Simulated scan of single mutants.
Amino acid sequence: MQPSPLLHNNDWSIVEKLPQDGTFRTYTRIEKNGKTALHMDCGPLEGVPLVTRVSDFVPICEWLRSIGLRAPEIYELDELNNAAIIEDFGRVSVKQAMANGVDRMQIYKTAGRILEVIQQAHCDLDLPNFQTSFMRKARERFAMWYVPVLHGASNPDGFAEEYAAMWDEIERSIGPYEECFMHVDFHVENLMYLGGEGLNSIGIIDFQEGMYGPNSYDLVNLLEDMRADVPPDIQHELLKDKSESFRNWYRVLGTQFHCRLLGQIIRWAVVEDKCQYMQYYDRLLPYVERALDDPVLAPFRAWLQREGIVLQDASRLDWQGRRDFIADDAI
């Protein structure tokens, strides 16, 4: 795959390259005739663990815009080279807006209403399903990456499969979930503050890995974010009218997600030399520890005790010296 010619064919000038996140995507802010835009390079189309295609971005973007939400307008597209030029929502995420003094409750209630619009809208796009997705398989990263570093020893055969089976048992005990479109990465740095009030005050980005899945997943991502502390009154406000089933799946999926990140952080450091995510153990560990008080998670609490797992901040362990205990086929 060649670099996209979009930048050079249309007289755009580069303003700045944006910091890269935990994916292979890169963004560059560009300018032409006083108008800014973003050049989005979605990365390699092969040879990486999780391929992101600009062709996945387009239909989801158009669908979000069709239901009245602010997703970026697509100005130019280069599917051959997996790139696009899209609308620039500016530099202020809702996280930054709150730091600048915008009312936190207003921001989170608006984000919650955006999720309600998404969950209530009919979506007939051809998208992956959470149950068969790579993301669901990746929940085993807690067992494959975090536990060997924690214990300073290789896992016994079948350990990750046993971990997944334990979660399957918990999920069966709480019944089915309501399915809807799932953003997958709905957090305060993927929501851009556009000013004003109402649904259009927030722009939605980084939705190209969207799929169908549990209607509680995105709210967990928003309220139990590794990047931001959310006050209890805001969590209560957004959860107070949810059903028991929603709350049960919220707790189960949230805890799976946090545990996956405990392992994912080690994987980022070992495989991609991205150690900056180590700082988030201080926020993730309390999420898991508090969740263990929920009766729904009693089998997980028992499993941890049986396996002798005491959760710790892996950044304070010799994770580099223990990396050889991680299996070669860890996902």
Rank of each mutant, 00 (worst) to 15 (best):
53 R>N: 01
5 P>H: 13
261 L>M: 12
123 C>A: 12
108 Y>C: 11
6 L>W: 04
258 H>A: 14
197 E>D: 15
217 Y>V: 08
268 W>Q: 13
203 G>Y: 06
268 W>I: 09
5 P>D: 15
142 F>L: 06
125 L>A: 02
174 I>S: 05
96 Q>C: 13
296 V>N: 07
143 A>Y: 02
13 S>W: 08
308 G>Q: 06
64 L>E: 04
316 R>W: 07
56 D>V: 03
74 I>S: 05
152 G>Y: 05
210 G>Q: 01
98 M>Q: 11
113 R>G: 07
17 K>I: 09
29 R>W: 05
24 F>T: 07
204 I>V: 09
274 K>P: 03
75 Y>H: 14
138 A>L: 00
116 E>G: 08
137 K>Q: 05
183 H>F: 01
186 F>H: 01
230 V>A: 09
25 R>P: 01
20 Q>R: 07
68 G>L: 09
192 M>V: 10
244 E>N: 15
233 D>W: 08
77 L>P: 02
64 L>C: 10
237 E>M: 13
177 Y>L: 05
222 L>H: 05
212 Y>D: 00
117 V>D: 09
117 V>M: 10
21 D>L: 07
238 L>D: 04
222 L>R: 07
264 Q>K: 12
62 E>G: 03
17 K>L: 11
325 F>H: 09
7 L>Y: 06
83 A>G: 10
292 L>R: 10
131 Q>R: 11
266 I>Y: 05
160 A>N: 03
152 G>D: 11
256 Q>F: 00
230 V>Q: 09
86 I>K: 07
120 Q>L: 12
254 G>D: 03
43 G>I: 03
134 F>V: 07
253 L>R: 03
246 F>W: 06
195 G>R: 09
261 L>Y: 01
165 A>W: 02
147 V>W: 04
108 Y>T: 10
64 L>S: 09
1 M>D: 15
225 D>A: 12
257 F>S: 12
141 R>A: 03
104 R>S: 15
249 W>C: 02
1 M>Y: 14
132 T>M: 00
43 G>H: 01
194 L>S: 10
233 D>M: 14
42 C>D: 06
206 D>T: 06
122 H>V: 11
297 L>I: 10
71 A>F: 03
328 D>E: 12
326 I>Q: 04
257 F>N: 12
253 L>A: 10
277 Y>G: 02
209 E>N: 00
235 Q>H: 13
7 L>R: 02
31 E>Q: 15
247 R>L: 14
331 I>S: 01
73 E>S: 13
147 V>I: 13
53 R>Y: 04
253 L>G: 04
112 G>H: 10
83 A>T: 12
298 A>F: 09
135 M>Y: 04
308 G>K: 08
61 C>H: 04
168 D>V: 02
117 V>T: 13
320 Q>S: 07
322 R>M: 01
165 A>P: 02
101 G>Y: 09
233 D>N: 15
5 P>S: 15
182 M>D: 06
128 P>C: 13
111 A>S: 13
144 M>N: 01
19 P>V: 08
209 E>Q: 00
80 L>N: 12
258 H>M: 12
328 D>M: 06
268 W>P: 01
144 M>P: 01
162 E>G: 15
16 E>G: 08
299 P>D: 13
43 G>Q: 02
63 W>S: 05
319 W>P: 01
280 Y>G: 04
30 I>W: 09
71 A>G: 06
105 M>I: 15
